[in-house]
Design a protein around this nucleic acid. Structure first.
Lengths: 205, 205, 205, 205
DNA sequence: AATGAATGAGATTTCATTCAT
DNA sequence: CATGAATGAAATCTCATTCAT
């Protein structure tokens, strides 16, 4: 990905007003680029061109490419957190959670950040922490929903979260590649199983 | 990611003796680089340096970077095919298949190629085809093992393959990032469930 | 000076044939640029433009700016070594040594490399070593010329080398800036003193 | 060295109260940066960051980088002038002058400005003038101390100043690089010689 | 079968400077 | 007094690829 200084990415450093419209535009554009072309394509130039800005301006707001990537990651994490909280408030919380995991737009982004974390030691810790926080948040929600009742299925809230994440992600990523064999079957299986679970579920809080 | 020519990948063009030791060395090195640093790092130079060869020589065997990447992908696909066939011959075929899906080294490579396919239209078709072939091969194996008996669980061979792939992949990728919450629970759940399935299984062919 | 990776400069790495005419041209041009505009001006672009080459070609021969700078330094050190050896063979060796130290072209280059060493940890060791080798070579020459006879003046070969280097350098650098006050006086003083020394000198070897 | 506007340095233009604490902070920080990392590192940004200020503020006080550099140079010249005056008032003035010339902190800064003058025509005249003034001031002091008595040694006040400057500078710069061969010998030689001179010296004024 | 030379493109980053508030 | 925004230029480096030998 070109030369990259070895200095730690400064998660906190943030040039430009937080509420700046330009900053938001850059962030949105970068997210779109990452989703469509991968994190490696989120170069200053490409993002700037697409946003109709000068490359230098991108650097003004995000001194380092890492800063930009982490900012997009953070934004995604915040969106996921909101989605989880919304699930808890939904009519059928478990199903809402499953839909979130099977959402391909969300998965495309998440996938990129995992790939990114895998290849850039600098960013690994921050990205991993975001993922862990999402897991924890889901555990909270699922615990509130099921109490101990998941144990009857041989599962735990954390285990359920892992299973849904895995199946959701493989469906989304394969869809993107045009691979579909077994998808409907797997989806039906999960949904059927979740329905059964839902009957076992405690009162919504 | 640096400049990448837009020329169609010449899947078939192949210079250099097929059985050449140099060719094998380049392929192995490229695979290691991809596994450790990601496909974006598999540049002619990097592979050459690491293999102790001149960059030009890499180009001699693989005229295009895409040629090299596809060759590594093909090699991985062949290894996966062998693993699936070996599973069929194992004592506990379903469990062997699950272990294959949960194998982190294999997943690391597979993950890279999915990311690659996602971001390079050129290669998408070839890589997707390899994945589909693997899925088909597993369906064959699982059908032979279970016949119709999976239906009782609300599943199909293809659906089961998808489920195992998803859960296996999420475990492997999160492990790599040091995320472990819920992993043991999910693993126990899958293994317990597979044991139950195995009792339902037909005679090994 | 722009981004600079933290990787150690690879003193030995050397792309392109040693005897290449292009390589020599780049080296000569870089030396001229450094002498005239300072080491900080020895950028790929500037050197390339001045040599009538493409910037990429400079990178082909000297992957890193540090590689280029060190190569120029090495070339200078070799020239100095030859000058010292030539002094030993001259009619009046001590005076020849003094003239070498007072040579402004040589000093301009030396000055740049000391400044460079001062500001780039990477290169410090190599450059310092070159300087030390020059000092050692002079000590050898002066010892051969004077034996113990310098002691009568309260000096040693190494001490004399330091004194000549210091006075020679200040004269050369100030000349370059147009500062001349006291220069003739200092020069006369040194030359008078060296004449006296020469009479004290042993037989030339 | 990055882009550097070609606008003449505005030696006189000076925004911000002369006595401003902020101005002094910027000046001190710039001096430290130059001393430690060289004049080329004294960029608006770097100085600002290190001083905990915004880059724009540095520009507010010093519209141009050249303005900043010259201000630091002036500050250094004033300090040297004070050191020379102090030498005259010292117990052993000649020795005090020598110690000033051998002072490595002072030399590090002086070295940078000579390099700077060498490479930026804009600034050459101003910096050279400062140096010349220091030389003149020393000549005054030495004349007062020795009258004509230096002639017996074949020297003049200006010549002595040059000699001390040269030897002092080479010792200081080589020390910084870890080169020490001959240093003690040269130092002993100079000090012994200065002692002899001192006995020849006139009454302190 | 292998390699040295050359080139154009692009990515990352740093910088000085201007302007409006 | 002070600052945020914006911009254009340049420096460093990496790459894929082509060509001639």
């Amino acid at each position: 990905m070109g030369p990259r200084g070895s200095s730690m990415a400064s998660t906190t450093r943030r040039v430009g007003t937080e509420g700046s419209a330009t900053r938001a535009l850059i962030l949105d554009t970068a997210e779109a680029v990452i989703r469509e072309e991968g994190y490696a394509a989120a170069s200053t130039r490409r993002v700037a061109t697409r946003a109709g800005l000068k490359p230098s301006l991108v650097h003004y707001y995000f001194p380092t490419t890492d800063d930009l990537l982490l900012a997009v990651n953070l934004k995604g994490a915040e969106a996921s957190a909101r989605a989880i909280d919304a699930a808890l408030a939904a009519d059928d919380p478990v199903r809402a959670l499953w839909l979130m995991h099977a959402d391909s737009a969300r998965n495309a982004l998440a996938y990129e950040f995992i790939a990114l974390a895998n290849h850039r030691k600098n960013l690994r810790a921050v990205i991993a922490e975001h993922s862990e926080r999402m897991r924890a948040r889901q555990v909270e929600v699922l615990s509130r929903l099921f109490g101990d009742r998941l144990a009857a299925e041989g599962l735990t809230p954390a285990g359920l979260s892992v299973v849904l994440a895995g199946i959701g992600r493989v469906l989304a990523t394969e869809d993107a590649l045009g691979i579909t064999a077994g998808h409907d079957d797997a989806r039906a299986f999960v949904e059927h199983w979740l329905e059964r679970l839902a009957q076992n579920q405690g009162t919504k809080v």
